[in-house]
Simulated scan of single mutants.
Amino acid sequence: MSIYQFTATTIDHKEKSLKDYEGYCVLIVNTATKCGLKNQFNGLEALYQKYKDQKFIVLGFPSNQFLNQEPGTDEEVSQTCQLNFGVTFPLFSKVAVNGKNQHPLFHYLTKETSGLLGGAVKWNFTKFLIDRNGNVVERFAPKTEPKDLTTAIEKLL
């Protein structure tokens, strides 16, 4: 199995197959614009800009599961990300990252990372690094700054 088996709804309400990212190094992040870690949007965008020409992409999945820190509509989330943080990487419609309504992609990601940081997503800005074959390589804690992922990303590029 890989991330390529999954589809997700983009922030502008279009179904997108993750197979479209085949051959890319992918960083999947659950995001929230009202979270105390929201400045990581800047670091995620910097990573995307630095490596996008090498087939690296960040995929943002907003979630409102942690203290109501993403209460807005998809349109509001998109606007906030663009205006406040200059986000140009792809964003998806809000998802549940845990629980009975958990998006199937996050079920797969959490199952694949059942080690030390594994299990349920504990907070916003949990990061999953995916290799060019669609396999989960590493999971990073919410407080891990995007700039600290450079070495891991460069190994996959």
Rank of each mutant, 00 (worst) to 15 (best):
K52Y: 07
L129M: 08
Y24C: 02
D148Q: 12
P71H: 11
M1L: 10
Q65T: 06
V29C: 04
I3W: 02
K155T: 11
I28R: 02
D20I: 04
G60M: 05
V87Y: 01
N135L: 04
F61I: 07
L109E: 13
H103K: 11
L105K: 02
N98G: 05
K155W: 02
V87H: 01
V29M: 04
L129H: 06
D131A: 04
E15S: 15
Y4E: 00
F66Y: 08
G60E: 04
G43T: 09
F85Q: 00
P62V: 05
E145W: 03
F61R: 01
L149H: 01
K127Q: 07
K19Q: 15
T113Y: 03
L116Y: 13
E15I: 12
S2Y: 06
L129P: 00
E154I: 00
H107S: 15
S93W: 01
V121K: 05
Q40L: 13
F128T: 06
K55M: 06
H107G: 14
S2G: 04
K111G: 14
F61K: 01
V87S: 00
N64L: 05
Q79V: 07
V136W: 04
Y51M: 00
K122V: 10
K14M: 08
V121R: 05
K100C: 09
H107I: 12
T33F: 09
R139W: 06
V136N: 04
L27I: 07
Y51E: 01
E112R: 12
N64I: 06
G86D: 03
R132G: 03
V137L: 00
T80A: 14
V137M: 07
S17E: 15
L59Y: 05
D53R: 09
V58E: 07
Y51D: 01
K143I: 10
T88C: 09
A152D: 14
E70S: 10
T151P: 00
W123G: 01
D53Y: 05
F125P: 07
H107E: 15
L67F: 14
N84H: 11
W123P: 04
K155L: 10
N68T: 12
E45V: 07
S17L: 12
E45L: 09
N135G: 00
G134W: 13
F6H: 08
N124Q: 12
P104C: 13
S78M: 10
F89M: 05
H103E: 10
G72H: 09
K127L: 07
F125N: 04
F85R: 01
Q102R: 11
N64C: 05
G60H: 03
N64P: 07
N64V: 07
N39Y: 13
Y4H: 15
K52P: 02
L44I: 06
L117S: 06
A32K: 02
F85W: 12
G119D: 11
E75Q: 15
G99F: 08
I57Q: 13
F140K: 02
S2A: 04
R139I: 02
P146S: 08
G43E: 09
V95K: 02
S63N: 10
G43P: 10
I57S: 13
F140G: 03
